[in-house]
């Protein structure tokens, strides 16, 4: 039981990170009709910038956190014009190619130029802060709990923004009918930039959670995160924020539990197998697309 609970919490914390990345991708899919495959790579690249800042300052966690947040925001926003071109051409598949290309570039930067390509390990000031809980085999770190809470709060905050604010309603109008949104007078280009800024803020939060809850970062981790978040977005139903959030948590928990109770790396194969069956059974997504 203790192992189960520990794995459950670990799964929810990694699920919270998946949920944040999926929510950022879903937001851009909703508002701009593009799948930004490079989003997870931006998150991991930001962890690298944060790590470098901490390395340069004897592990100052505050500077690391600020650097991660700022670099994620900046990287997301500076790529907006590339995706804007794809959005204006109504070319979502070409946008995937742009995202994959950007992801590869960022992977090379992480692999070739930083820390000689070795995985990063973040200082304990970032990964072991706050009160932990342990009871026998049940061990939970405070950053893991923070990852769950922040993941939930961020997605709830995003939904509140979309349903309660003027700009959020404009985003939803753009998602439903871009032509009418334009005729109503919503400034599409400016709103598109706002959506990237919002996604960049979420990437920044995700980068901080990755570094503190997982304690490590690497280029292969970016590949896995991009793949899993993309699958979560598509299987939940493209643009379905609530569905993406729930499925991300479920994938995190399923991975964690299968790692505990199944041999080797079968956990990933099993979880992706279930998702594959799910998308075949429900082609419009488990929760339906674009809620």
């Amino acid at each position: 039981m203790e192992v189960f609970l520990a794995q459950l919490v670990a799964g929810l914390s990694i699920g919270g990170i998946y949920a944040l990345v999926a929510a950022g991708m879903n937001l851009l899919l909703l508002v701009r009709n593009i799948m930004n495959y490079s989003f997870a790579y931006v998150v991991l690249m930001a962890t690298y910038f944060g790590w470098m800042a901490m390395e340069a300052t004897d592990g100052d966690p505050a500077l690391g956190v600020i650097t991660m947040f700022a670099s994620a925001l900046l990287l997301t926003v500076v790529t907006e014009p590339l995706f804007r071109v794809m959005a204006s051409r109504n070319a979502p598949l070409e946008a995937v190619v742009v995202g994959v290309g950007m992801g590869m570039v960022l992977t090379e930067v992480m692999s070739q130029f930083i820390h000689q390509g070795r995985p990063l390990v973040f200082p304990s000031a970032l990964t072991s802060w706050g009160p932990g809980m342990s009871h026998g085999l049940f061990v939970v770190s405070f950053p893991q709990v923070v990852a769950i809470v922040v993941g939930v709060l961020t997605v709830v905050g995003l939904l509140t923004f979309l349903y309660r604010s003027k700009q959020g309603r404009a985003f939803r109008a753009m998602a439903q009918d871009l032509g009418t949104a334009r005729i109503i007078g919503i400034p599409l280009t400016r709103a598109g930039v706002y959506s990237f800024i919002l996604a960049g803020l979420m990437a920044g939060i995700a980068a901080i959670l990755v570094s503190s809850a997982l304690s490590t970062s690497s280029a292969p981790l970016a590949d896995l995160l991009a793949l899993k978040a993309t699958v979560v977005v598509l299987v939940a139903g493209g643009g379905n924020l609530v569905g993406g959030f729930l499925l991300a948590l479920a994938v995190g928990v399923a991975e964690s539990l299968t790692q505990a109770y199944m041999p080797g790396r079968w956990s990933v194969a099993l979880v992706f197998g279930i998702l594959m069956v799910a998308i075949i059974a429900r082609p419009n997504g488990v929760f339906g697309s674009r809620s």
Binding site: R169, A170, R172, A173, D177, T180, I184, I186
Partner: peptide, 14 residues
Amino acid sequence: GVMARMTVLENLQL
């Protein structure tokens, strides 16, 4: 050109 999946109030707010 109404937003079918938004409420009447949300359409007016737009």
